[in-house]
Computed example of a mutant assay.
Amino acid sequence: MVSKQDAVVAAVEEAITGPLEDLGLDVEAVELTPAGRRRVLRVAVDTDGGVDLDTVAAATKAISVVLDEPPGDALLGEQAYTLEVTSRGVDRPLTAPRHWRRNADRLVKVTLVEGGEVVGRVGASDDEGVLLDPEKKGEEATRVLYADVAKAVVQIEFNRRSAGEEDA
């Protein structure tokens, strides 16, 4: 059974997806959480090349237009809300082929459905899977099918190597 809040979130996501796609953005997440007498509506967006402040501002304006004018103004009801628009963030799991494509050359840790982990840099990816390039010389790249991935997250690197840079 779908809760009323889940239904509202789904309706908001449906209403804002088209206008955000017109800006070249993908809706990555929509969350509605209570915050005292108000609610916070968080919308995470992403696009190839990443999201900058101008993109966030344009997305915020597009979402506001949808939610402040009929029929969208009825989606959130009378209770006040605060809108927060943000980028997808590095801590969100990689769940769609576009996430892998957008994280090319980033170090990822993949937990497999059948157990075990694979760590490597995102190489070539397609609609079925991704090639993970090894961190160490002499090791072979590993092809991982998305269907075999239980969880995959980008690893934070403070001294990230440059594209094409080899390990010493």
Rank of each mutant, 00 (worst) to 15 (best):
residue 113 V to N: 08
residue 20 L to T: 07
residue 44 A to T: 03
residue 146 Y to V: 03
residue 103 N to H: 13
residue 148 D to Q: 03
residue 26 D to F: 12
residue 124 A to T: 13
residue 124 A to S: 13
residue 53 L to Q: 08
residue 40 V to L: 10
residue 85 V to G: 04
residue 52 D to H: 01
residue 137 K to E: 15
residue 37 R to D: 12
residue 130 V to R: 05
residue 91 D to S: 12
residue 149 V to D: 03
residue 9 V to R: 11
residue 6 D to G: 09
residue 58 A to W: 07
residue 85 V to A: 04
residue 136 K to A: 13
residue 157 E to T: 00
residue 82 T to C: 07
residue 107 L to D: 06
residue 39 R to V: 06
residue 8 V to L: 11
residue 100 W to I: 06
residue 8 V to M: 13
residue 37 R to A: 09
residue 102 R to M: 07
residue 79 Q to D: 14
residue 105 D to Q: 10
residue 97 P to Q: 12
residue 110 V to H: 00
residue 5 Q to C: 09
residue 41 L to A: 06
residue 156 I to M: 11
residue 96 A to S: 10
residue 28 E to M: 10
residue 134 P to A: 06
residue 2 V to K: 13
residue 82 T to L: 14
residue 57 A to C: 03
residue 157 E to V: 00
residue 46 D to F: 00
residue 102 R to C: 04
residue 110 V to E: 01
residue 140 E to M: 14
residue 132 L to Y: 10
residue 48 D to K: 07
residue 102 R to A: 05
residue 57 A to P: 01
residue 159 N to D: 15
residue 33 T to P: 05
residue 48 D to W: 03
residue 131 L to I: 14
residue 60 T to Q: 06
residue 1 M to K: 11
residue 59 A to L: 04
residue 106 R to L: 01
residue 158 F to H: 05
residue 73 D to S: 15
residue 27 V to F: 03
residue 49 G to N: 09
residue 91 D to P: 06
residue 100 W to S: 06
residue 53 L to K: 05
residue 25 L to E: 08
residue 137 K to Y: 03
residue 76 L to N: 07
residue 96 A to C: 06
residue 112 L to M: 15
residue 8 V to H: 05
residue 66 V to F: 04
residue 29 A to S: 14
residue 19 P to W: 09
residue 142 T to I: 15
residue 36 G to I: 01
residue 114 E to M: 14
residue 127 D to V: 14
residue 132 L to N: 04
residue 28 E to P: 05
residue 115 G to K: 11
residue 98 R to S: 15
residue 136 K to M: 03
residue 125 S to F: 02
residue 42 R to Y: 01
residue 45 V to G: 08
residue 147 A to N: 04
residue 117 E to A: 11
residue 162 S to H: 14
residue 87 S to L: 01
residue 58 A to K: 11
residue 108 V to E: 01
residue 29 A to W: 02
residue 59 A to Q: 09
residue 8 V to C: 10
residue 27 V to A: 05
residue 92 R to G: 06
residue 21 E to D: 14
residue 9 V to N: 08
residue 1 M to Y: 13
residue 135 E to L: 15
residue 160 R to Q: 11
residue 167 D to L: 08
residue 103 N to S: 15
residue 108 V to N: 04
residue 84 E to S: 09
residue 89 G to R: 01
residue 35 A to L: 10
residue 114 E to K: 15
residue 160 R to S: 06
residue 68 D to C: 08
residue 33 T to R: 13
residue 140 E to L: 15
residue 88 R to N: 03
residue 25 L to R: 11
residue 94 L to D: 00
residue 1 M to E: 14
residue 165 E to F: 01
residue 13 E to C: 10
residue 121 R to P: 05
residue 73 D to C: 12
residue 165 E to D: 08
residue 64 S to K: 12
residue 140 E to C: 08
residue 90 V to I: 13
residue 33 T to A: 15
residue 96 A to P: 02
residue 64 S to C: 09
residue 88 R to W: 00
residue 78 E to A: 12
residue 86 T to I: 01
residue 80 A to H: 07
residue 143 R to H: 05
residue 156 I to Q: 07
residue 150 A to V: 04
residue 46 D to A: 02
residue 110 V to P: 04
residue 113 V to K: 13
residue 75 L to H: 01
residue 107 L to R: 07
residue 144 V to F: 00
